[in-house]
């Protein structure tokens, strides 16, 4: 049985939750208790744009679609960040036009002290 959607949970578009939803769309209880199957509109944004990327080697759920939004979402100061998407270095000017896709390997790097 489907669990109700949790307010703080990130649901993926192609993920299991949405697929299960489609399957149950035409069952009788859908019409009796639609709120049980359809997330509140406040949560729709989570449902439709969230995805997983490999950020610095770790699988990370993000809400952003572009690189610059993702960097802001991570709370990283953009001034000193070097960003690499799928082993390709992305210039700061191009961050806003760089759309991320499910499974992209993103590296956020910076210079640190070293000998």
């Amino acid at each position: 049985m489907l669990q109700p959607l949790e307010p703080d949970t990130v649901y993926t578009v192609g993920g299991k939750v949405m697929k299960a939803l489609q399957k149950f769309l035409f069952c009788p209880s859908f019409f009796l208790f639609p709120h049980f199957y359809i997330p509140h509109p406040d949560q729709w944004v989570h449902c439709y744009i969230a995805m997983h990327i490999i950020l610095n080697g770790e699988q990370t759920a993000i809400k952003s679609q572009t690189l610059d939004a993702m960097i802001a979402e991570q709370g990283v100061s953009p001034d000193t960040v070097i960003a690499e998407v799928n082993l390709e270095l992305i210039k700061k000017d191009d961050w806003a036009q760089t759309y991320l896709a499910e499974g992209d390997k993103v590296e956020l790097l910076s210079f640190v002290g070293g000998g």
Binding site: Q74, G75, T80, I82, L108, L109, S110, V112, G114
Partner: peptide, 14 residues
């Protein structure tokens, strides 16, 4: 200098 992955929690200057 060295190049490393960023740690979003450590708010250090570059």
């Amino acid at each position: 200098v060295a190049l490393r992955r960023i740690d979003p929690k450590a708010k250090e200057k570059d």
